[in-house]
Write a protein that binds this DNA or RNA. Sequence first.
DNA 1: GTTTCCATAATTGTATCCAATTATGCAAAC
DNA 2: GTTTGCATAATTGGATACAATTATGGAAAC
Lengths: 212, 212
Amino acid sequence: METYTEKTQVHVAAEQIRTLILDGTYRPGQPLRQEALSERLKVSRTPLRHALQSLAEEGLVETVGFKGARVARPDPNMVRDLFDMRLLLEPLALKSAVAHHTKLDFARAEMALDAADTERDPHRLSQRNWEFHHALYRPSDRPTLMRTIEQLNRASAFAEAIAKSIVIRSEKSAAEHRELLEACRNGDMDGAILHLTKHLQLAYHDIQNLEY
Amino acid sequence: METYTEKTQVHVAAEQIRTLILDGTYRPGQPLRQEALSERLKVSRTPLRHALQSLAEEGLVETVGFKGARVARPDPNMVRDLFDMRLLLEPLALKSAVAHHTKLDFARAEMALDAADTERDPHRLSQRNWEFHHALYRPSDRPTLMRTIEQLNRASAFAEAIAKSIVIRSEKSAAEHRELLEACRNGDMDGAILHLTKHLQLAYHDIQNLEY
DNA sequence: GTTTCCATAATTGTATCCAATTATGCAAAC
DNA sequence: GTTTGCATAATTGGATACAATTATGGAAAC
């Protein structure tokens, strides 16, 4: 019987910091001092630095030379770029996946939707949203493509959290998600891709109008 | 007078390991023991671990729980996914950039081409290739898009190094590059995008036929 | 009053040591 | 002969101490 460990302090620290940032506790541009964070998260500075570096490569924090780490500040262009890329890549993932969709995938997607309905915490809400998209994309069995798409979704979640659009448009998003799921259930690939495209465009539009 | 430091041991260690991997010194799947690497690079294990993590998020090495790090093993699907994505994203970057191209950009691109002509080291050759593409994409002034494209190019360079196609098709690649540059110089956007697309498709094709 | 310079403090990066986890090998049981 | 179990070694993760770098503040010069 093989046993998995995986729970290294780096991951839990990264997850906690991620939550603090997406909750708005730490605002964009705010410096993240290692000693203070170390004390707050009850973790030594060594794994903390690893976590900060991980978040830096994820795009959530910026880290410079010997100056330290700050919460990243998303610019409007970033939002445009992210959605331009998602509009190109996610339809490809969906297209590759529809032929391999199973009832289990649909069940997973629906579970994520139901969980999202009763969720008000921004971070967990964005997690549910990703779980939904992930359930529909994953059957494509293209991990490299998935990896990039997940990165873009994480960054989008950050931008949406800043603009507070995640919670504001959660009902609209839920409706769009259910339409997309229904099209997938009916095996309507073209319709599904159309719904996905529309969903992304609407999300982009709403973020644009909220952020300054 | 402000002075920049930036030269942290993590970066130099990461760069050295990157070179060792792309040179073929460390083969895919080979375990990377911290103590041995620490001794080889004359660096403590702490910054070394950071470098390994950085390379892991870059996709060059795989790192699991308490088991350690290994050189990543690219699968054929990864190559397909990478080029599918590049074929979607790089034309967008080029399209956004052509309107802002200056003589300086063309000069930079040509300098990269000339440097590539006399370069046989795989790692440096792939660096030159990226410098060329970077020179043509950068005027788009879309850093978030550039960031993702650079990640994909790094991963592609890894796959090409494994398949040894970087050096093998270097002359072909150079010719394609010069055609692309010429189209950009003439302000022929459609032609440039066509050349870029063809270039990526040919590179993909040649890798496919070389890897097993 | 402003600027420059230097000393000091605050903060990050690195090295070393210890703890936790995993891999290895051998003996005993069946 | 194979397998199970445990003891030991090898390796990674984490905590602490130290070194390097940057930021801060105040005095002196103009």
